[in-house]
Simulated scan of single mutants.
Amino acid sequence: MIIDEEPRKRGTSHELGCDLSAISADELRHRITLLESEIERIKGEIGRKEAGRKAADSLFGPKV
Rank of each mutant, 00 (worst) to 15 (best):
G11S: 12
T12D: 14
G52S: 08
S21M: 08
I23D: 03
S13E: 13
L34A: 00
G61V: 03
R48P: 02
E15C: 09
K9W: 03
R8A: 10
L20Y: 13
A25P: 01
D26G: 03
K43E: 15
E36W: 10
C18E: 15
L28E: 04
D26H: 05
L28I: 11
R29G: 13
P62T: 04
A22W: 06
A22D: 06
R48M: 02
E27I: 06
P7H: 00
E40D: 14
L28W: 09
R48E: 06
R29C: 15
L35I: 07
E5P: 06
I46H: 07
V64G: 10
L16W: 15
A56K: 01
R10T: 13
K49R: 03
H14L: 15
V64L: 12
D4L: 09
A55R: 02
T12Q: 14
I46N: 07
M1F: 10
E6C: 03
R29D: 15
D4W: 08
G11Q: 13
P7W: 03
L35Y: 06
L34R: 02
E38L: 12
K54A: 01
K9C: 05
R48A: 04
I42N: 09
S13K: 11
L35Q: 07
I3M: 07
D57P: 02
V64P: 14
R41A: 10
H14R: 08
G44N: 11
E27H: 08
R31K: 15
G44F: 06
T12S: 13
G61C: 01
E6S: 04
E45H: 14
L59C: 00
R53V: 00
P7A: 02
L16I: 15
A51T: 04
R48I: 00
L35W: 04
T33H: 05
I3T: 10
E36N: 13
D4R: 08
S37I: 06
K54F: 02
A51M: 07
H30F: 15
S13M: 07
C18K: 10
R10D: 13
D19P: 11
L20E: 14
S21A: 10
V64C: 07
L35V: 04
D57C: 01
R8N: 11
H30M: 04
E50F: 13
L28A: 06
I42A: 09
D26V: 06
R48D: 01
F60L: 02
E27K: 03
L35N: 05
I2W: 08
I42H: 11
G52H: 02
R48F: 05
S58W: 09
